[in-house]
Amino acid sequence: MESIDSVQSREVARAETERGEVVLRRRTTGTGADVLELRVNGVFVMDTLETSSEIELAAQALAVVPDPASVLIGGLGLGFTLQRVLADPRVERAVVVEIEEPLVQWMRDGTVPHGPALLADTRATIVNADIAMAVAEARSSYDLVLLDVDNGPGYLVHQANEAVYEHPFLHRCREVLRDGGVLVVWSADPAPALLAAMREVFGNAEEQAHQVLLQDRPEEYVLYLSRR
């Protein structure tokens, strides 16, 4: 792990919402890499250095659906799942539901440098809402539903997000998926209860572990995939 002396960090943007504090920091590592880091209520959420699992969240689903024309993404983050979705020419529409309006604004105004170009894609629509409410009220159907709304059921930033990993919400995700559609859920840790719930709701579920490095510290993130 890098020493304190080898990393310089400064705050780029901060906002207070009804759910707490959202902070964007920029750090320069000892190797000279310039990294943006997102924290919510003091908890590390993601950065621009290790993005492989956010990308795989989309890639795994895109690989198993022949015609993923319509995609719903729960959680904008720093945009890497959306970026991977839009890189696929088969995608005609990508709806991203993000509850934190400041994060959307930072992506739009260039506080996150790659944000404006990404959100300028006419296939992308950003909805500032809670994912549970958005899915409950959805009138469209989707080929993919990709969820990265918290750190997973075992390491929640917001306790209210617990419902996203439970049977009623998973049932609703199944309802908005077209036949052959796929749900993928990102988790910072193995979540056997989530795996069991997805198997009960969909009749199938797959667990995929992804090894990552966070500031030279090995971690394992997990994707859970079910198909309607």
Rank of each mutant, 00 (worst) to 15 (best):
R90Y: 06
R39T: 15
G154D: 07
D148R: 04
L36D: 01
E100H: 09
G110D: 04
D34V: 15
G42Q: 00
P218S: 03
A188K: 01
V95P: 05
L24D: 01
L24I: 07
V40P: 00
D121F: 04
V97R: 02
A120T: 03
M1Y: 07
Q105I: 12
E175R: 13
A188L: 04
F169D: 09
Y155R: 12
V145A: 13
D143C: 14
R228N: 10
G75I: 05
R14G: 01
S187F: 08
R172S: 09
E21K: 03
W186C: 06
G79Y: 02
A138W: 05
W186D: 05
P68L: 10
T122H: 04
C173P: 09
D148T: 08
S226C: 12
T111G: 12
L49P: 04
D150I: 06
E11D: 07
L119Q: 02
P66A: 14
H171I: 12
V65A: 12
R19M: 03
D34T: 14
L72M: 10
Y221C: 00
V164I: 14
M46F: 11
S140C: 10
L118S: 11
A193E: 15
V45A: 06
L183H: 11
S9R: 12
L119R: 02
Q60N: 08
E54F: 07
L170R: 07
G20T: 00
R217G: 03
D5Y: 15
M46P: 09
T125M: 07
A196N: 05
L78P: 05
D150A: 07
A87I: 02
S141W: 10
V222E: 00
V35M: 10
V64Q: 05
D130P: 03
E175V: 03
V43A: 11
R26A: 11
